[in-house]
Design a protein around this nucleic acid. Structure first.
Length: 849
DNA sequence: CTAGGGTTAG
């Protein structure tokens, strides 16, 4: 039964959440207001590359094959970094264009006039009429509309464009104006309007140029509409135009934005080579960006090497993008190495470099390192900019260190950078996560008072925060306001909300929301489903799971076209929750339902072609731990083997205490997991060990934990004097305690002294997501008591158990100690993993002193 | 035509 081949799509390998991402129009996601500080970013001097590009063309005649073999395609078979849904539209206002002053003084004067007179449309018309005799050809007008665009004022830019077009007779000049307008709109995230300008231009006979097509492709790229960009590219070829380097670069860029599709990017790259267009530095930088977004660190690395081989200069963009690929892919150490080598190539880290690295550190939980980088940055004389400040503030806010977060806010303002929506969103999210709702309300009011417009993310943080705290009335109010603003929910909004409700055990409400989102045209993604599966794997808080989950739409929903869309279902759900629902189900009944539901949800994912990933796997393993019995857990895994025999075969095999074959499969699975970020990997190891421990497979648990340690899944867990368990689940931590003590015992056996002080850290409060959750500490305390280990809670740190080397040594020498330390399986099997003694610490009897 | 920031599962 378990030997069938898994369906092709159904591997453990991660899918990108944005695979089903509902793309929104950028102006919905980013509500920019004319007063928003985004429009007033400081102007930066143009970046000048010292490298000579012409030399490459000379060095690379024809289209040489890649000097370095890149992984064959499709090489998307790992998990790394694929959980990033990095933003689709990043608008960089105020970034200078490389204008070479082709405009006249009159144009400059007109611009100042327009700017000084404000945004009234009639103003610009009058000014343009006044200046018309003095303004020359397309150059002056393109200058004007670009400058207006740089200030976010697309309305006046359009006005200016329209005026210029009607006063220009030459087709060529009209074409230039159109391309300019399209690219300006593109940079402002107005892809639809850009398309409109393009269509008009083509219809009127001046838009059929490589420039206009390239500009439109770029506009789509900026908004993350990769498929649309490719469509434009095709129609361009169809109308007989030859794409040039810029066209190709823009198209590759598009692949990096709308979900980082390296396969597409690579196809475009090949097409480019085939058509004799030589890639340049920007081509490679864009390819690197695709890798970074797609989590393809290995590919990024070979592209980087390929640049060297092709003698294409590397610049600060190259390095920053490479660093991003490394650090967001979990290779922070590698990123640091690369960063250290930059100066030798005369490419000096800038604020982008630092904020990239800082974010990379923060992402993998290395907060100390992240904070250190800020100091380093200041020492290097690099000024923190808006992004750096917001990043720093967000780190503190996410850690619940609000005093420090506010201090950063103060410093930022003292540097003349006002708090923006991003700043407030970070604070709101932080306070919401800590359940400090008064602060949330206060900040939300303050934000509005400061004329900042809450956006989708603001409301998302508010609403899910309130839901987590059971403040459904507040959630309803926030949601109503959200709708009133004309904002539209997206998949992340829903996933976040669903997760919040799942965490409260309200699975049935989640089912309703799932319906709602789909009837709204938003496809759930793997994150959405993982949240739901996680709900089944959680121990506490499941106080209201309804009996009829099985019959709910959670499992029976079949397609996206739900009947009529009544009023808002979300409000309905909140209302029901607000008045409190009946229906606590008896414990056993619930558990049995859960077990079936997990399968049901998994099948649903399969049916909807949403690829499960490691997080799904971890969630399922956690759900296994919540199963009523060993039999249920093994049945669940057995069933899941039909979908993915490798992954679930390993879990099943380990649970059953199977033999060497299972173990070798497990090892290759571990290898695969290792290629993901450490937090993903540790979650996996935690879940797996927990399940094994829970069902009494303690030796198996120990082996897994040892593998995890060997692969450095949990950072610096283990020295002679200190065992740090703060990143571990309770099962993993307990298996680790045994193993560590046995290891210390071997040290003793070998005749070494123990350190003076021994400590075990459980990270109470400090590292938990919610301050004060001491579950791990309690589990470890109970374990230490039960095995009679002579540790006690440290006075200064209640999450730390300490003892002296001498006391522990004496205890280890006691005759009964070895027996309690050596893990025994609760169940005996014929082919047990216990054959793998070689991996375990030395179990020789200790010589008496 | 190229680089960093705010949200989701573990």
């Amino acid at each position: 039964m378990a030997s069938s081949t898994p369906p092709a799509h159904c591997t453990l390998t991660a899918t990108k959440p944005y695979h089903n991402h509902h793309l929104q129009h950028p102006h919905n996601r980013h509500r920019h207001h004319p007063t928003s500080s985004h429009h007033h970013q400081s102007w930066r001097p143009p970046q000048v590359s010292l490298h000579n590009q012409a030399s490459h063309a000379a060095a690379c005649p024809g289209a040489p094959p890649p000097a370095v073999a890149r992984p064959a395609f499709p090489c998307l078979s790992d998990f790394s970094g694929c959980r990033s849904t990095r933003s689709v539209s990043k608008m960089h206002f105020g970034r200078p264009r490389s204008t070479t002053n082709r405009y006249s003084a009159a144009a400059e004067e007109a611009l100042q006039l327009v700017l000084s007179r404000g945004c009234e449309v009639s103003n610009i018309d009058n000014i343009l009429v006044d200046f018309q005799p003095k303004l020359r050809a397309s150059d002056d007008y393109t200058f004007l509309l670009r400058e207006l665009g740089n200030r976010g004022d697309w309305v006046n830019a359009m006005r200016c464009f329209q005026f210029a077009i009607t006063h220009e007779k030459r087709r060529n000049e009209k074409g230039k104006l159109a391309s300019s307008m399209i690219s300006t709109l593109g940079r402002l995230g107005k892809a639809d309007l850009a398309k409109h300008v393009f269509d008009v231009a083509v219809n009127e006979g001046y838009g059929n140029t490589v420039y206009a097509y390239s500009a439109l492709i770029s506009a789509y790229a900026k908004s993350g509409y990769c498929d649309e960009a490719i469509g434009v590219f095709r129609s361009m070829k169809g109308s007989g135009l030859k794409p040039n380097l810029v066209t190709y670069n823009a198209l590759i860029d598009a692949c990096g934005k709308g979900g980082a599709d390296y396969k597409k990017a690579s196809e475009i790259f090949n097409d480019m080579l085939k058509n004799g267009v030589l890639p340049d530095r920007i081509t490679y930088n864009s390819l690197l960006a695709v890798c970074s977004g797609a989590g393809l660190w290995e590919v990024a690395k070979s592209l980087f090497d390929e640049m060297v081989h092709r003698q294409i200069d590397q610049d600060i963009y190259t390095y920053n993008t490479l660093l991003d690929a490394a650090s967001s892919g979990g290779h922070v150490d590698v990123a640091f190495e690369i960063m250290a080598k930059m100066a030798a190539k005369s490419i000096f880290p800038n604020e982008v470099t630092y904020s990239t690295m800082i974010r990379g550190c923060a992402k993998v939980g290395k907060m100390d390192r992240a904070l250190n980088l800020f100091n380093e940055m200041k020492l290097a004389g690099i000024k923190l900019d808006r992004v750096s400040y917001n990043t720093l503030l967000a780190i503190y806010a996410s850690l619940g260190r609000f005093d420090e977060a506010f201090a950063v806010g103060k410093e930022m303002e003292s540097m003349g950078i006002k708090k923006d929506v991003v700043t407030y969103n970070a604070l709101l999210d932080g306070f919401g996560k800590q359940g400090m709702y008064d602060k949330v309300k206060e900040l939300f009011a303050e934000m509005k008072h400061g004329n900042l417009y809450p956006n989708l993310l603001t409301y998302s943080a508010l609403i899910s925060g309130y839901c987590k705290g059971g403040l459904y009335k507040e959630a309803t109010e926030a949601y109503t306001e959200f709708k009133r603003q004309g904002l539209k929910a997206d998949v992340v909004f829903y996933s976040n909300l669903i997760d919040a409700l799942c965490k409260k055990g309200l699975v049935e409400s989640c089912a309703l929301l799932l319906d709602e989102m789909m009837s709204d045209g938003i496809q759930p993604n793997v994150v959405t489903y993982n949240s739901i599966i996680n709900a089944f794997g959680q121990s506490g808080n499941v106080d209201c799971v309804e009996a009829q989950v099985e019959s709910s739409n959670l499992l029976t929903y079949t397609d996206g076209k739900m009947a009529v869309k009544e009023d808002d279902r979300i409000i309905e759900v909140f209302k029901q929750l607000a008045c409190g629902k009946p229906g606590n189900v008896k414990h056993e009944q619930r558990a049995r339902k859960d077990f079936r539901c997990v399968l049901g949800v998994f099948r649903k994912m399969h049916q909807m072609e949403i690829k499960p990933n490691v997080v799904t796997f971890s969630a399922i393993l956690n759900a296994c731990s919540r199963c009523n019995s060993f039999e249920e857990a093994s049945l669940l895994l057995e069933e899941l083997r039909l979908f993915d025999n490798q992954v679930y075969g390993v879990a099943h095999g380990l649970l059953m205490g199977h033999n060497e074959h299972t173990w070798s499969q497990a090892l290759s699975l571990f290898d695969e997991v290792k290629r993901m970020g450490s937090s993903t990997a540790s979650a996996f190891y935690n879940a797996l060990t927990d399940m094994l421990w829970h069902f009494g497979q303690k030796r198996g648990a120990q082996l897994v934990v040892l593998e995890g340690k060997r692969r450095e899944v949990w950072e610096n867990t283990w020295t002679q004097s200190c065992l740090d368990l703060h990143l571990m689940s309770s099962g993993a931590a307990r298996a680790m305690v045994h193993t560590w003590l046995l290891n210390i015992r071997s040290t003793l056996y070998e005749g070494h002294e123990l350190p003076k002080l021994l400590s075990i850290l459980t990270g109470w409060g400090k590292h938990s997501k919610v301050v004060g959750d001491g579950a791990l500490k309690r589990a470890i305390e109970a374990l230490l008591v039960s095995i009679g280990a002579p540790f006690e809670v440290a006075k200064c740190n209640i999450g730390r158990f300490i003892s002296t080397g001498a006391v522990v040594a004496a205890w280890l020498r006691e005759s009964g100690t070895l027996k309690v330390l050596v893990l025994q399986d609760d169940r005996s099997f014929s082919h047990s993993t216990s054959t793998r003694f070689d991996l375990l610490p030395n179990l020789q009897p200790l010589p008496l002193l």
